[in-house]
Simulated scan of single mutants.
Amino acid sequence: MSPGDPAVLGTRALGRALLARQHLLARTTATPAAMIGHLGGLQAQAAPQPPYLGLLARLDGFTPEQLSGLIERREVVRIALQRSTIHLVTAEDCLTLRPLIQPVLTQGLRNSYGKRLAGLDLDALVAEARVLLEERPRTFQELGPLLAATRPDRDPAALAQAARCLLPLVQVPPRGLWGKGGAAAHTTAEAWLGRPLDPAPSLDALALRYLAAFGPASVADLQKWCGLSRLAAVLKRLAPQLVTFRDEQGRLLYDLPDAPRPDADTPAPVRLVAPFDNLLLSHADRTRVLPEEYRGRVMTPNGIVLGSLLVNGLVAGSWELTEGRGGGRTVVVHPFGAVTPADRGAVEAEGERVLAFAGGGDGVRIEAADR
Results as ranks from 00 to 15, higher is better:
220 A>E: 15
211 L>Q: 12
246 R>P: 01
184 A>V: 06
214 F>S: 12
208 L>I: 13
215 G>K: 05
249 Q>E: 12
241 Q>F: 01
206 L>D: 10
234 V>G: 01
241 Q>W: 00
187 T>G: 06
240 P>C: 02
199 P>T: 13
239 A>G: 01
241 Q>I: 06
196 P>Q: 11
252 L>Y: 03
232 A>S: 13
209 R>H: 15
194 G>Q: 11
199 P>A: 14
235 L>V: 01
247 D>L: 04
239 A>H: 06
205 A>Q: 13
251 R>W: 04
190 E>K: 12
235 L>H: 04
221 D>C: 07
198 D>P: 11
231 L>N: 09
228 L>T: 14
192 W>A: 15
237 R>M: 01
225 W>N: 01
231 L>R: 15
205 A>C: 09
236 K>H: 14
233 A>N: 02
232 A>F: 01
224 K>P: 03
246 R>L: 01
222 L>D: 00
221 D>M: 08
202 S>Q: 13
196 P>F: 10
236 K>P: 02
215 G>Q: 08
252 L>I: 01
200 A>K: 11
243 V>P: 03
211 L>S: 08
207 A>E: 07
181 G>Q: 07
234 V>K: 04
216 P>T: 12
252 L>R: 13
194 G>L: 05
221 D>L: 06
219 V>T: 15
204 D>L: 10
246 R>S: 07
191 A>K: 12
219 V>H: 10
204 D>V: 05
252 L>V: 05
241 Q>H: 13
238 L>D: 08
188 T>Y: 07
214 F>K: 14
198 D>T: 06
195 R>C: 07
241 Q>M: 11
184 A>Q: 11
198 D>Q: 05
225 W>K: 04
228 L>P: 13
240 P>K: 03
190 E>Q: 15
202 S>M: 06
197 L>Q: 00
219 V>E: 09
189 A>L: 08
187 T>S: 06
185 A>K: 13
240 P>D: 03
218 S>D: 10
231 L>K: 06
230 R>S: 03
186 H>R: 08
248 E>L: 00
238 L>R: 05
223 Q>R: 09
252 L>S: 02
189 A>I: 04
227 G>K: 12
220 A>S: 15
206 L>I: 07
188 T>F: 10
216 P>C: 10
188 T>G: 12
185 A>H: 14
226 C>M: 08
240 P>F: 01
232 A>M: 02
200 A>H: 11
223 Q>S: 15
234 V>C: 03
209 R>F: 05
216 P>R: 10
195 R>G: 05
184 A>H: 08
238 L>F: 03
185 A>I: 00
186 H>L: 14
235 L>S: 00
213 A>C: 09
185 A>N: 04
202 S>K: 07
202 S>L: 05
198 D>H: 13
191 A>Y: 00
223 Q>K: 09
192 W>N: 03
189 A>P: 04
206 L>W: 12
218 S>R: 09
184 A>E: 07
238 L>Q: 05
200 A>W: 04
225 W>T: 03
184 A>C: 00
211 L>H: 12
198 D>K: 08
236 K>R: 15
218 S>N: 10
246 R>V: 14
200 A>E: 14
190 E>M: 07
228 L>Y: 15
190 E>D: 12
205 A>D: 15
236 K>N: 11
182 G>R: 02
196 P>R: 14
188 T>R: 10
187 T>Q: 02
229 S>C: 04
250 G>T: 02
239 A>I: 02
185 A>V: 03
220 A>K: 15
237 R>Q: 14
249 Q>H: 12
197 L>E: 06
242 L>P: 12
247 D>E: 05
